[in-house]
Design a protein around this nucleic acid. Structure first.
Length: 583
RNA sequence: GCGCCCGUAGCUCAGUCGGAUAGAGCAUCGGAUUCCUAAUCCGGAGGCCACAGGUUCGAAUCCUGUCGGGCGCACCA
């Protein structure tokens, strides 16, 4: 059952509008889709505001304020609405009875960890694919943002009532894994005592392959030391990929990320999925044999026209049709990816990919492919698959203001492991989640380490720690939180409750927009409201949470504090950040 | 040349399917602690929301164009 106080009032207002239609004050069948019910930005305006009169004045052939008066007249009959006033150009501001808010506190207590969960998603299955870093080395900071955003989005969608699969696509079939295998073989020879000198061009130079070479030496002895490449390449490829995936999984674990499914591109190809996809596409005239034009704006010396199997992505707004196979007969990345998305669609009602902005150029073609597939399949009686690609913009990595390289080729990069060890998982996650993902961000390693003490994550965690602290203190004094007399709570407390009561609404809005960063900002605001409430006690000891002479009031305030802590914990849970008990 | 993303306070960023006087943090200036954690709070100063048009009761938000920054534009991955 979806619990949001705001949706309950949206229904009440809708009922009033329906009544006005029945009375003839509004024309029958008026479109009410644009009517909003939300808390006003300025709390002094009231608890709730609706724009109904302004939106509907035109169809009602009247002016907004006159219509507003009629709506207000109806709303005032509701005992839970203390006041309803027309303001400004025709807003209607409502104030709700204190009991509405105190019962919300009780609702938080009843629902506990479930407060904020929603049935909005109706249990539909969403597949979220994120990270999917190539298995050729440890994870670096370039992967971090997509990893954290994807993971938080997955939790957010779960809270909003979806059944979520967290998936990682392992690109273990392209040329880059051959390079990995060769680089590993080099380190293997090194481990067997050869002097390999400088790592030559075209090999991965990173130190992280040294232990992989040693492991290979233990595994294979000197069997492949002087053998031709054909003898060992597939074996070393599988061996190295498996080790790299262990490294990546352990890096992800440091960030608190765990995927449900790892899909291998090599396995996909071995199962002939791309062939099946191609056949289906050809049957539907979506793939044909053709020749690409020379790319514009770029001169390629060795360009020559070749006939390749092309997907008709121009039919879906792409600049150019895209090859699914290379001239050597192997699948392109896109060809395999297309089959991969068909596979994912078999077990999901919606697909979401989280990609780095450097792949923005390929969004159109994959969206085109999924749209084509979806369209074709819905003609065959299957449900179309909504598909969304969320682009996470680049993180510009700086070291003391200077751009830092982060390529695996050079081996010089800031790894996620380094970062987490330095500042902690919570700082890394919160930093990545306190900005919208489609804006670029700078990430200065030195600055973040230095400024980690000022990180907003501690502000939120401190609020939670304070709540835990006050409970310890109360226990010492023999006062237990109690929801028995919440009517003792006054204006100051209700201000805090109103902030907390936004949480379920915020979860739904964030999930609908697929923007987990909204939860981070919401928690910051809630923490601010709590800190402000706490500090009232510094000016006036009667406003402290524990007031020795007033045990009932103290018990009610403690109960409130516990519920605020609950909401903070639930929110941090979505973001994958710890709610600490002490700071 | 083309495509995608961004442009809001000195800096880093929020801004609810378009809503009332555009908000935080940092930095800066001034205050608050004999007492529940001062990693906190309260206040001051700081804005042509890049620019120009358009859409409408209403635009930081939507549309068009210009300028500026980033990313991409192989049969790579």
């Amino acid at each position: 059952m979806t619990h949001t106080l705001y949706s309950a009032y949206a229904e009440k207002i809708d009922a009033v509008l329906a009544a006005l239609e029945a009375e003839g004050a509004l024309p029958a069948g008026t479109n009410r889709a644009n009517v909003s019910v939300e808390p006003p930005r300025d709390p002094s305006h009231g608890d709730l505001a609706t724009n109904a009169a302004m939106v509907l004045a035109k169809p009602a052939a009247t002016n907004p304020r006159a219509l507003a008066e009629k709506i207000v007249e109806h709303l005032q009959r509701d005992p839970a609405i203390v006041s309803a006033e027309v303001a400004g150009p025709g807003f209607i501001n409502l104030r709700l009875a204190p009991e509405t808010w105190t019962s919300e506190v009780a609702a938080i207590a009843d629902l506990g960890d479930d407060y904020g969960k929603s049935a909005m998603g109706k249990g539909t299955r969403v597949n979220v694919e994120y990270v999917s870093a190539n298995p050729t080395g440890p994870m670096h900071m370039g992967h971090c943002r997509g990893a954290v955003v994807g993971d938080a989005l997955a939790s957010l969608l779960e809270h909003a009532g979806h059944e979520v699969t967290r998936e990682y696509y392992v690109n273990d079939a392209g040329g880059q894994v051959d390079t990995l295998a060769r680089s590993t073989h080099l380190r293997y020879r090194e481990a067997l005592g050869e002097d390999i000198g400088e790592i030559p061009e075209g090999f991965y130079p990173g130190e992280y392959l040294v232990p992989v070479g040693q492991a290979a030496a233990e595994e294979f002895g000197d069997r492949f030391q002087n053998e031709p490449e054909a003898e060992w390449l597939p074996l070393f490829r599988a061996f190295a990929v498996e080790r790299m995936m262990e490294v990546i999984k352990s890096d992800l674990a440091m960030l608190g990320i765990k995927h449900d499914v790892f899909s291998s591109e090599a396995a996909l190809q071995a199962a002939k999925k791309p062939e099946a996809a191609e056949m289906w596409m050809r049957e539907h005239d979506l793939v044909y044999d053709g020749v690409l034009e020379q790319p514009k704006g770029k001169t390629l010396e060795d360009w020559e026209p070749v006939e390749l199997p092309l997907f008709r992505s121009t039919k879906f707004g792409d600049d150019q049709d895209r090859p699914i196979k290379k001239s050597d007969g192997k699948w392109t990345y896109f060809g395999a990816d297309l089959a991969y998305h068909m596979q994912k669609a078999e077990n999901a009602d919606a697909l979401i990919d989280i990609w780095g902005a450097d792949h923005a150029g390929t969004v159109k073609r994959i969206k085109a492919a999924v749209a084509a597939m979806s369209e074709g399949q819905s003609e065959e009686g299957r449900k179309p698959i909504p598909f969304d690609v969320k682009l996470v913009q680049m993180v510009q990595l700086l070291r003391d203001g200077e751009p830092a390289k982060m390529s695996k080729r050079s081996g010089n990069f800031v790894t996620i492991a380094d970062m987490v060890e330095e500042v902690g998982k919570d700082v890394v996650r919160f930093t990545m989640l306190t900005r919208k993902p489609e804006a670029q961000m700078d990430f200065d390693f030195a600055k973040v380490v230095e400024a980690s003490k000022d990180n907003p994550v501690f502000y939120v965690q401190y609020a939670h720690a304070r709540i835990c602290s006050i409970l310890r203190k109360a226990a010492e004094e023999g006062i237990a939180p109690s929801g028995e007399q919440l009517d003792l709570l006054g204006e100051d407390e209700l201000t805090l409750v109103k902030q907390a009561a936004q949480f379920p609404r915020e979860v739904e809005a964030a999930a609908r927009a697929r923007e987990p960063h909204r939860i981070a900002f919401y928690l910051y605001d809630l923490a601010a409201a709590f800190h402000a409430f706490w500090n009232l006690g510094n000016d006036d000891s009667q406003k402290r949470i524990i007031v020795a002479q007033q045990p009932e009031l103290s018990a009610a305030r403690l109960f409130l504090a516990v519920q605020i802590g609950q909401v903070i914990r639930n929110g941090l849970g979505i973001l994958g950040v710890e709610a600490v008990e002490e700071l």
